Structures are given as C-alpha cells and as structure tokens.
Amino acid sequence: MDDINDPQLKLKQYIAIKVKRKRVEQGLKITDVARIAGLSQGMISKIENAQVSTSLETLSKLCDVIGLPISQLFSDYDRPTGGAQLTRAGEGMEVVRRGTEIGHTYQLLSYHRGKKKSYEPFLITMDDASEVFPTFSHPGQEFIYLLEGQILYRHGNHLYEMSPGDSLSFDAEIPHGPERLVEVPIKLLSIIHYDDEH
C-alpha cells in the first residue's frame, strides 16, 4: 500500500497513505497530532491504517495540524496514470521511405501508437541542394513544420516558400514534395495522420 497513483486504491487507502506520509515528513508523532487536533490517538491510527471512513471536519482538523491543505490531499486522487513515449534528440528510429534513395533521412519519432496506426511523426533531413526530387502521394493528411533551412515546397499545382517556423497542412493523396532546396541543411517535422479505416 505505497503507490498513491494506483487507480485501484480505494479512497480510504489513498487518504491513509497521504496523511501518514505527510505526518512522518513533518517529524510529528501520533500523540502530538492527536493533542493539537483534539482527536483521539486511536482515530488518527485508524485513519492512517485505512480502517475508518472519516468526516471532512475530522480530516480537515488532522490536515491542518500536519500542514497538508485539503485541496492538496486530493490532488493526485483518481488521476490517469499516463504513459507517454519520450524520444530523445537524435534517438528516433531511422526508417526507409521513398525519399531515402534520393538522400532524405527519415527518423520515425514515435512507434508505440496502440492497435491502429493513426499517425506517423517523422524528422526529415535534406542536405543536397542540387538533387531533383520526385513528388509523393500517400493516404492521409500531412502536416509539415520547417525547423531549419529554406525550401520551396510543392502541393499539387501550388508552390510554397517556407522558412523556419512555417508550417503547411494538406491532403497527402495529392502529389507533394520539395520543389527546390533553397538553403540547406533542411530539417522538417512531418506528421502524417491516417483516416480511421487505414
């Protein structure tokens, strides 16, 4: 009974852990807390051992003595546990895509996305200004964000001049891709979002 983020903990157990932890942190004995709060030692012991459901009034007295605001007492209760994937700089999984053969480097930044592939985030690096690039066409919506360099980017019949900080969102089924690398090296973040049926 020591993980306050465990969603299976009952409220009594949660309160017991938080109250006892705070009392011990403050270096207070149950006898001292009981005397100052005007509660019996037995009651405090039962609260700390999750053996009793207590009133908010009693809990408030107890929390005042140990320096634990009621709002803080419940701040972690019932919070989703989470579980995000952190990919450190330079640690994305290098993958082969259609652009690899013409000198693009693709780093897949997330690869634990649940049962269905709903999106793919890539860090794309291009550094050959003389290269001629084909266009790409694939399912989904794509979002690109230019981090470094300057590029002339084509989507269908439109050309977009992009500098660092610029972004572009488009239907990825329509042919798209770099028209001209204006200033290299170029680094861009590309996120492809797939429809539900993908």
Score class of each variant (00 low, 15 high):
Q72S: 15
Y153E: 05
L73K: 00
P164G: 00
P139N: 08
L56S: 09
S190F: 07
L39F: 01
R113W: 10
R23E: 05
I192C: 10
P134Y: 14
P69N: 03
N49W: 06
V24H: 07
V184W: 01
Q85M: 15
T31W: 00
S163D: 13
G177R: 08
V65G: 00
I151V: 15
Q41I: 10
R23S: 05
M1K: 08
E197I: 11
K22F: 08
I191G: 01
C63R: 00
I102V: 15
R180T: 12
G99I: 11
E197F: 14
H104V: 14
P7F: 07
H158I: 12
H155V: 15
H158S: 14
S45T: 09
P139D: 13
L188N: 08
V95A: 10
G83V: 02
T87A: 04
H193M: 14
S190H: 04
Q85Y: 11
G90D: 05
S167E: 08
Q150C: 12
L68Q: 01
D76L: 10
P69H: 02
V24G: 00
Y111K: 13
P139R: 06
T87C: 12
S167R: 04
L168V: 06
S169N: 12
R88H: 12
G42W: 06
G27K: 08
Q8P: 03
K187D: 06
L86I: 15
D128P: 02
A16F: 05
P134M: 14
F122T: 00
D32T: 14
R113Q: 14
R35I: 08
T135H: 11
F143W: 13
N157W: 02
S169I: 15
S190W: 06
H104M: 15
P80N: 00
S71C: 09
H176C: 05
K115V: 10
T100K: 04
H138K: 08
I36Y: 06
H158E: 15
H193Y: 13
Q8V: 13
C63F: 03
G38H: 01
I15P: 03
S163I: 13
M162K: 00
I36L: 10
L39R: 00
Q107M: 15
K61I: 01
Q13L: 06
M126F: 11
D195C: 02
I66L: 04
Y77V: 03
T135A: 13
G42E: 09
A84E: 12
G92E: 04
I144H: 03
E94P: 11
S110N: 14
V184T: 14
V95P: 06
S137E: 10
G165C: 05
S163C: 11
C63D: 03
